[in-house]
Nucleic acid binder design. Sequence first.
RNA 1: GCGCCAGUAGCUCAGCUGGAUAGAGCAUCGGAUUUCUAAUCCGGCGGUCGAGGGUUCAAGUCCUUCCUGGCGCGCCA
Length: 565
Amino acid sequence: MDYFAKNIISILKEETHLKEDEIENLIEIPPDIKMGDYAFPCYSLSKALKKAPNVIATELAKKIQAINPISEIKAIGPYVNFFVDKAVYSEKVLKSISKESDAYGHAKIGNDKAVVIDYSSPNIAKHLAVHHLRSALIGSAIYHIYKTLGYKCVGINHLGDWGTQFGQLIVAYKKWGNENTHKSYTVTDLNNLYVKFHQEAEKNADLENESREWFKKLEAGDTEARELWQHFKDISLKEFQKIYDMLGIHFDAFIGESFYNTMVEDTVRRLKGKGLTRISEEALIVDLEPYNMPPCLLRKKDDTTLYATRDIAAAEYRKKTYNFDKTIYVVGSEQKLHFKQVFKVLELMGYDWANRCVHVDFGLMKFKDGKMSTRKGKVVLLEDLLIEAVERIRKIIEEKNPALENKESVANDVGIGAVIFADLCTKRNKDVVFDWDEALNFEGETGPYIQYTHARLCSILRKYSKPVTPDINYSLLKEDETIILIKNLCQFPTIILKAAEFYEPSLVCNYLIDVCGSLNRFYNTHRVLSEDDNLTKARILLVNSTRQVIKNGLNMLGIHAPEQM
RNA sequence: GCGCCAGUAGCUCAGCUGGAUAGAGCAUCGGAUUUCUAAUCCGGCGGUCGAGGGUUCAAGUCCUUCCUGGCGCGCCA
């Protein structure tokens, strides 16, 4: 609750006989600045007082008095509207931004508690493609957001580096892989082998048996199998890292599924010990019928384990290793049921932290004509998208600002930023249809728009080239465009909290669009640098504050804020 | 068949846990620059909020039925 709301509550408390938190919940922000800064709706009083809401509003407005920092109280229809003293308001907001600067929007609510976040988690031996983008970016943004709220974040890349497909890959490699080019193998080669295996396997059923044999060898720790598997993994990781570097995505640990291979037996033993398992159709399951869910499969009839088993083992490991307060899985919504089952099993195992496991799901990315598929080669590689984005930005720079220094690095920041922003901008749970022109649109509500706004502000500050001070005459900040902007800036900390609560980075994106819209409207109607020293000083402070908020917001999304573009 | 998610302007999306006349961007049409970056801003056009019923002083928002699309539902992850 902010300073002004507090004052309004104390004014309203006596006359309405409502409790403080009741009033707080009722108070809202009018849709138009001309109506006031805060509003108290009188509908809910109408029953008790047996009067029409607008009558109540009128009477109430007459009875109560505006005291500093509230400058005016006025009934409009069924609302009592409050106007705050603009100078006091501006001073509060802008001084706190100046003081906190890079830390504006941060909080300490996390108390250094650990949050484990599982994101990206691609499969080995396949390229990172555009449909891998969402998990990586949403996870990374949540990482940043929680970090700014004082949590200790642990980013984990839960690589898909285990399973029968590695048996297939070994067979394919031994049959068609060229030993001599061994050292220069790329993910493309691995992917080709994978595709070739499936083509050949249709004609020759023996291949599947061979691959099962090899996977068994791998599980048993056979040296040759192990070495090949490690080799495939090294090739993949090297290429993944290149993309993560381009995107600026960081992980604290790369711990793949294979890592839990040795722990799975223990986990199964614990589950059995607690009497949670039974055999059904030759498989080992946890019956979830009482919870209206299909059973959770722990072990196949051939005795090998499944991903649910490994996820349970992984959760136990993460709790033991990081003692997390919360663990977040940023995984597509097609796995909703899977995580519901896993979390339920953890709960049945008696872990009180089971309800602090969160599946942050998101909608699918697909093409207009259907799903993306690595097998059919129907994908857009992430690297291609990023390179194309940077390339297009480079052309725009040549056209609009050829004298720019550091063109390369700016093109990178803006191109990559555009891709990140476009992906994070829509709410998580919506499906996304991939479209080159949409992903690479740079006008309107886009990353470059935010960055451009930021660069313009930096430009003004460069031209001003004097220190910015919060000791200004705040009553000079009085026009509507100015006040609306300051109100926007004031919301930032609340937005961050909300984004964290709902695991929703899109809230930050939409907020930044609002701020930039307000800023640009201000920019187009008022001059910052002028002959009037005091006014210049005041507006410079506003410019610097806005620059700061945009920068902080972009950083939370993992986007750079270049000072020129 | 059952479950989960979505359906808001021609297109892409917002809509603050039920509140004041449903908002942006793109597209389209028309305007703004001798002044801090026009990757900007202003205006016009454009809506039975998928459909019906219900709860409420008040519903895009809550309940219910139906329609359409996506995803999931035992040995892949």
